[in-house]
Nucleic acid binder design. Structure first.
Length: 740
DNA sequence: TAAATGACT
């Protein structure tokens, strides 16, 4: 027996020991008998790796492959590797995977692991998924935006196919134990198949240090540190995992932990940052990858690891030997606030189900303990049962465009497992209308069909398509790519580092003329790409090389898509002017919803109908030049002590003049009736007439308001200070709004 | 006048 055969043999017997193995025949039978099936089981039951193999061996994919979706790339890749090894086939043949930038599958691949986003794109190209006989949606309890869209699409579109065609099409949804009843009733009361898990008990304890009134992060960081040290001094061997919300908090906690442990007169070793056998390790997403890898290295004998992490440790990374959890009870969450039309990143209490998930991380290899710093009262009154799914919290513009392109007219009554609020859907429709992606009847336009091809948010796609029509995509492609990766500018935690980084960033900004943040991104992209040693260049300038590298891949992908689209009928326009002017005008088409005009002092007033007052964020290269600016567009908004706009570009009023009335022209409630039903020509004509009148009124109104603002510009300093205070309060209000 | 949860096409 060869070495590889031997290891396969061991693997095989290993997989027989998995809890799922004894249910093999019944499971295959259940899939055979049902169109929809819910499979539930704890981590460690083996469902992700084994179920697709059982179905394959039972011959269920003779007429089409099995597709298994995962919310994360690494999961899709590692599971595919494992399964191909267990089956003794080469990865990329019978068993393969596909994630963005990496397709390791062929047309003969029978079991294909993929990210949920990839399957969604496949549906756009082939709505009946004709190559598939079974789709398995894994980790459905995580409720990722894409999984939720797929849940509805598979119900609506593909249940038709299963009845009309042979061989029938099947859907298996795999989820942790929560919410299985809901899933079952969503899919025509289909059966639920339960597989027992293989986890160890976790003892949960409330430390009562945080009550319902404590929501300030400076409080809970201290308490977390206290509990962690208690665990370290009182509990038996085993590593500790601490959950906090972000980089600065984690760095603060690590420093405190280190200092306090030191005061307690423990041994002290600066190099390894080890205190009496406690190895303190921060962990968050923007950390360099090699530093992240350190966390997985075994600790020296007798040393206890203490990983202080963001939610990255809740699902994405698994650390061996964790026996203790310290849970702060908070998380950072991106919430869409449709009242003000903004996405706001905020710290909120986690849900009870998320707290249980965190606790579960202590029971992977042996029995564990979870220390919750908050009280039972906090648990009862502040923490919701379940986390609100992404589809109910984020901007839906891309999702709605996708549905429209799949021919789903009534996007309000689409079968959502959890329906988003109607006004969120209407906001999305309005935005799509403003971008000319849908027309007044709510039907997708030619432009909309071009837009859906790009893996970008609609505003960037719109700007990119304009640039492409003008033949200057070389300017916009890098900008779009740089804006769709994580922040590229490094800002260290320590003040000394911050100064150094700031100086370096200003140097680059000066090269780009310090006149436009979008142009600055283009400049970084080009400088880095033409450098002999890009990674060294980035290090020298405090730029995230990892982020720029992924921007390179994104740019290449976008360029390929554009090239493909340009082979067919593609719009063509002409323009003359400088590169910077070209870039700014194209951006106006994507960002005219984010236009602001200089208001009082250094503040700006948005033109979106809310008339919010905003300031330019200090990280912008235009910070400090406000008094020379008039009209600006901005990429995003940040709410902290004030309301800031980041990534800013000055524009001329003439460029948005014709676009601005669009912001007021359409009544979302009328769109709602358009969204629901087909409209006759007569109704349409009447509506158009009403709209025209409204448009006229809105334009006049806007002109009046502008005039008034011009007058106000000359008012006194005292009033300016009053308005500044008002702006501060507006920030507070945003926070309150979004909590409701 | 200063800030960055996590994933995905």
């Amino acid at each position: 027996m060869s070495k590889s055969e031997k290891s396969r043999e061991t693997e095989h017997s290993e997989s027989r020991k998995l809890p799922i193995y004894q249910h093999k025949d019944k499971l295959v039978q259940a899939v055979k008998e049902n169109t929809f099936l819910i499979v539930t089981g704890e981590t460690g039951s083996g469902k992700t790796t084994q179920l697709p193999q059982y179905l394959f061996k039972a011959g269920l994919c003779r007429d089409g492959r099995i597709g298994v979706t995962q919310p994360r790339r690494v999961a899709a890749i590692t599971v595919a590797q494992r399964v191909s090894h267990e089956m003794g086939v080469r990865l990329g043949e019978e068993v393969g995977y596909q994630v963005r930038f990496d397709d390791c599958s062929t047309k003969d691949t029978m079991i294909k692991y993929m990210t949920d986003g990839c399957l969604l794109r496949e549906i756009l190209a082939d709505p009946s998924l004709s190559q598939y006989s079974i789709v398995v949606l894994d980790e459905a309890h995580e409720r990722s935006l894409n999984t939720d869209v797929l849940l509805g699409l598979l119900k609506k579109t593909l249940s038709k196919r299963s009845r009309g065609r042979k061989p029938p099409f099947k859907v298996v949804v795999m989820s942790a134990t929560l919410e299985t009843e809901k899933l079952s009733s969503f899919y025509e009361n289909c059966p639920v198949f339960t597989i027992p898990g293989r986890t160890y008990p976790v003892k949960e304890k409330f430390c009562n240090l945080i009550g319902p009134k404590d929501k300030d992060s400076s409080v809970y960081v201290k308490e977390v540190v206290k509990v962690t040290l208690d665990v370290h001094t009182n509990e038996a061997a085993g590593h500790i995992l601490v959950f906090l919300t972000g980089q600065s908090e984690i760095e603060k906690a690590c420093d405190l932990l280190f200092d306090k442990a030191e005061i307690l007169d423990y041994r002290y070793d600066v190099h390894d940052r080890t205190v009496e056998g406690l190895l303190i390790l921060p962990l968050y997403g923007s950390m360099p990858t090699d530093q992240q890898r350190q966390i997985f290295q075994p600790a020296p004998k007798g040393v206890r690891k203490c990983v202080v992490a963001t939610n990255i440790a809740a699902t994405s990374l698994t650390i061996d030997g964790i026996r203790y959890i310290v849970d702060s009870g908070f998380v950072k969450q991106l919430n869409h606030n449709s009242n003000v039309g903004l996405d706001i990143l905020e710290v909120v209490p986690i849900s009870k189900s998320e707290a249980q998930q965190r606790a579960g991380r202590a029971g992977r290899t042996s029995a564990g303990k979870c220390f919750r710093i908050y009280s039972k009262d906090f648990w009862d009154t502040c923490m919701p049962e379940y986390t609100i799914p992404e589809i109910q919290r984020t901007s839906l513009t891309s999702v709605i465009l996708t549905l429209k392109c799949l021919g789903i007219h009534d996007v309000i009554r689409f079968p959502y497992l959890d329906c988003p609020e109607e006004r969120f859907i209407l906001t999305a429709l309005k935005q799509l209308y403003q971008y000319d992606a849908i027309d007044r009847r709510g039907d997708v336009t030619r432009l909309g069909r071009l837009m859906v091809e790009f893996p970008l948010p609609p505003n960037l796609t719109r700007a990119l398509l304009k640039a492409a029509a003008l033949g200057c995509e070389d300017v916009m492609l890098p900008v779009a790519a740089m804006l769709s990766v994580e922040n590229i500018f490094i800002r260290p935690g320590k003040p000394e580092g911050q100064k150094e980084a700031e100086i370096r960033h200003k140097e680059i900004a000066a090269c780009a003329g310090s006149s436009n943040d979008f142009l600055l991104l283009l400049c970084v992209f080009e400088k880095c790409r033409s450098s002999d040693n890009p990674s060294a260049w980035c290090k020298e300038h405090w730029i995230h090389w990892r982020a720029v590298k992924s921007a390179f891949s994104v740019e290449t992908q976008l360029r390929e898509i554009l090239l493909r689209l340009k082979q067919n009928d593609f719009p063509h326009e002409t323009f003359e002017g400088s590169r910077s002017e070209l870039l700014r005008q194209c951006l106006c088409l994507g960002y005219f919803t984010n236009v602001a005009r200089r208001y009082i002092g250094k503040s700006f007033c948005t033109m979106d109908g809310h008339g919010s007052t905003v300031l330019i964020h200090p990280s912008s290269c235009l910070f400090g030049q406000e008094l020379h600016l008039d009209w600006i567009i901005f990429h995003d908004v940040l709410v902290t002590s004030r309301v800031y706009v980041r990534t800013v570009c000055p524009i001329r009023y003439e460029w948005v003049q014709d676009l601005l009335p669009k912001l007021h022209e359409i009544d979302v409630y009328e769109l709602s009736s358009v969204a629901r039903e087909e409209v006759t020509d007569e109704e349409m004509a009447q509506w158009e007439k009403k709209e025209a009148a409204k448009r006229q009124a809105a334009t006049e109104d806007a002109a009046k308001k502008l005039e008034k603002r011009n007058d106000e510009s000359s008012i006194t300093e005292a009033r300016a200070r009053y308005l500044e205070r008002k702006q501060k309060r507006f920030g507070e209000r945003l926070k309150i709004h979004s909590k409701q």
